[in-house]
């Protein structure tokens, strides 16, 4: 029975082949049979975690608390120099210049990624906006959020900052950024479950050194970043505490 590896459903579609290549690399390097199973929603992923059907996961910070504190997962690595940040944007012609100019009753396009949504709502809170006085429209892609803004169907869009930066220049030229978060300490983490816990140290070592050879460097690049860096247990606990604090 192979171990099950999954990637948080909010991965960028352009990196999909990269995760399959990475899984192949991981199997060869660890000498373990590992199956990459991708879920198309956070709900399905949550059910798989609950049913102990996940052994390795590139996890959204929102899922980290359950994985570490209820399911006994341990952190391995995070992408070097990458953190989860959100952007609040409006149509270029929209009269608001900052969050304080927004008023209750506005329609907000939100992504399904729970960490980005949460950071976005936290940014909106500075303008006295909350789940009770906005109309939320959940969108399953950032392109769709941009489209809703450009068509005037929503007042505000909440984006994963990296996804916003990857929008075409034409699209971005028609939008206006009101605020970009600069939190720095919230990030996705590659985590290992109890069934593979005995392999933690050597898999972690393989990951942090994988950019030191040409093949490994190519594989990690296909995921959209340059290297993996170690995540210590306390760093993970700190991030979970932080998420906890931001969720209220």
């Amino acid at each position: 029975m192979p171990y099950q590896f999954t990637v948080s459903p909010d991965f960028s579609p352009e990196h999909l082949p990269g995760w399959y290549i990475f899984n192949t690399w991981l199997q060869r390097r660890s000498n373990e049979a590992i199956h990459l199973e991708l879920y198309d929603s956070f709900q399905k992923l949550g059910s798989a975690i609950e049913a102990d059907q996940v052994d390795l996961i590139y996890a959204n910070p929102f899922d980290a608390a359950v994985l570490v504190r209820k399911k006994g997962f341990l952190p391995l690595v995070k992408a070097a120099g990458v953190s989860d940040e959100a952007i609040i944007a409006v149509h270029g012609d929209y009269p608001a210049l900052d969050i304080g100019d927004l008023s209750s009753g506005i329609k907000v396009a939100l992504p399904e990624a729970p960490d980005v949504s949460m950071i976005g709502m936290m940014l909106l809170e500075a303008g006295d906006l909350n789940a009770g006085n906005i109309r939320a429209l959940m969108c399953d892609s950032y392109i769709l959020i941009a489209k809703q803004l450009l068509q005037g169907n929503v007042d505000v869009g909440v984006f994963f900052a990296e996804a916003y930066d990857d929008l075409s220049n034409i699209t971005k030229s028609k939008l206006k950024v009101l605020v970009r978060s600069q939190i720095s300490v919230i990030h996705h983490t590659l985590m290992i479950g109890p069934k593979l816990a005995s392999r933690r140290d050597d898999i972690q070592h393989s990951l942090v050194t994988m950019n030191q050879d040409e093949k490994g460097k190519h594989v990690v690049k296909s995921l959209g970043f340059d290297a993996w860096v170690t995540v210590e247990d306390e760093e993970m606990e700190f991030m979970i505490d932080l998420m906890d604090a931001l969720a209220i």
């Binding site: 809170e125 500075a126 303008g127 606990e237 700190f238 505490d241 932080l242 604090a245």
Partner: peptide
């Protein structure tokens, strides 16, 4: 928030954000 490790409060984390 209290930082709880192995069932014990070991420290406190304070997070501040922009207020309305």
């Amino acid at each position: 928030i209290p930082n709880i490790r192995q069932g014990k409060v070991v420290s406190y984390t304070s997070v501040r954000r922009k207020p309305s």
